[in-house]
Simulated scan of single mutants.
Amino acid sequence: MRSPLPLRRRAVLWLLLPALPLLAIVAQFSSPAITFPGSWTWTIGHSVLLVLVSLTAWGGGSAFPWGMVGAIAAMLFFHTSLGFALGSVVHPVFGIPLALASSYIWLGFTGTVSTFELRHLAGLVLETCCSYDRQPDARSVLAATMFSLLAGLGLLFLAAAALRIVAARTWLATLVGGALVVAGVWSGFAAARGLGPSAAEPRDSADLVCAGGRVRVCLFPEQVDSAVFQSIQTMVHNVRHEGVSVADSVVASSAVVYDEDTIRLGYMPGMTEEQIAQSLASDLPEPVCSGDRVDVAIARDTFRSTAVAWIAITMLGGDRERLDSGDLDTEVGSSLDALLVLPRAAQAAWVNEAISAVRDCAVSPPEGPR
C-alpha cells in the first residue's frame, strides 16, 4: 500500500531510527561522574544524518547531564529541519547530498572562524568539554539549544510554506519561519557573547574531597580511592623528606597556571603508581626566559627534565627501574646518571638549584651534576 505521505514529508521520519539510539548512547556515556575518553560523532541532514559531537571525558557533579543531552537533541532537530527544508524545494535525488553538504559546511565553517559565538551556535564546540576538573559552560549549552530549536522550527515553517501545507497562509508561514531563524541567531549570539573557544568552565572546587596529614591531597569524588590518597601522600613525603622544595598540597587539576604552593595532579582512575609519580613530578614550569643565550636555555630545559626524572624516581622509593627511561633524551639520561651517583644530600641540593632556575629566570641554571 502506498504511503499517504509524499517522499519529501516521509524523509524527516527516517531520521528517527538513527537519532533515537544516538541519544540513548549519549545519555549513557555522558554522565559527569563517568570518565569516558574518546570522541563521539553525530551526523544529520535531510534523509541522512550529519552528527559530529563528542563522547569525550568531562567533569561536573553526579547529576544527570540533561542540559548537554538536550543540546544534542536540539542540534539533531536543527539538522533534520535543515534537510527537510532543502528537500522541500529540491528534488530528493539532489536534496539528500545537498543537505549533507550543507550540514558539513555549517559545522566546518563555524569551526574555523575566529568569531567564537558562531562555534557555540553550531554546537561543535561541545566536543571540547570536559575533563575531571572542568564542566559544561551553561551559556554554551544554552546558545546551541536556543539557536537549534528556534532556527530548526523556523526552517520547518519555511518548508511548510514551500510545500504549501498551509496554502492559504503561505506568506504567514514564510514570515514566521524567517523571524524564528533570525530570533535563533540573535538569542544564540546573546547567550554565547564573550565565550572563548571552549565549552567548558572550571569545576567548582567545593566538589573536591580532601585528605589531610603530612601532605594534603584533594581529588574529585569519582577519583577518590583511599589507596590512591595514601600513595600520593607517601610519594610527596619521600621527596620532601630528602629536603627538596616541593609543595605539601596536591590538587587534581589541569590548570595551566603554575603555583608553587600546590602540585597539580592529572589523575584518571586506573593510573599506575609510576604514572601518578610522573604526573606529580612533572608539575614544574616550562622555562621560557627571553634573555637566555641558546646554551643557557638548553641547560635550563635539560636540567628541568633531569629534576623531574629524579623527583619521580624518589617518589617511587629510589627505584630507577620503575621510571620509563624511553622518554629521556641522551643529554637528560647522562645528566640523571651523573646525579644519581652523588651523595643524597648533594643530589637534593642540585635538584633544588634546578627547580629554582625554572621558577625564576633571574636564577642561572646550575652546572651539570658531577
Rank of each mutant, 00 (worst) to 15 (best):
G212I: 03
S114E: 14
S54W: 01
D319W: 11
G59D: 05
N352A: 03
R169L: 07
G95E: 05
W66Q: 06
G194M: 10
G87H: 07
G243A: 10
V51T: 14
M271E: 12
Q230S: 14
I34D: 14
A85R: 08
L265N: 00
V90K: 06
S31I: 10
P92N: 08
L15R: 05
C129G: 02
T272Q: 08
S334D: 15
H237I: 01
V185E: 06
L340F: 07
R2D: 12
G70V: 08
A346I: 05
E367H: 05
T56Y: 06
G83A: 09
A200N: 02
G212V: 08
L52K: 09
T145C: 11
A199D: 03
V257A: 14
A206R: 15
Q347I: 04
L316I: 04
L7W: 10
I298T: 13
V296W: 03
D261Q: 12
D225A: 15
Q135W: 02
G152W: 09
V89P: 00
P369W: 05
G70L: 08
L5Q: 08
A144H: 04
V217L: 05
D327S: 13
T302A: 11
Q135E: 15
A191S: 12
A277K: 11
L339F: 10
G83Y: 11
A199I: 05
T234F: 04
S249P: 01
F84L: 07
I72F: 14
T35N: 05
L265V: 03
P92A: 09
L118Q: 05
W171P: 00
F64I: 05
A211N: 06
V257N: 05
L328P: 03
A190Y: 09
A345I: 12
A11E: 15
P285V: 07
C129Q: 00
L15F: 14
S131L: 10
P366N: 01
L16V: 14
V224C: 08
V48P: 02
T43N: 13
M1G: 11
S325Q: 11
L172K: 01
T56I: 10
L20M: 13
R320S: 11
S356G: 14
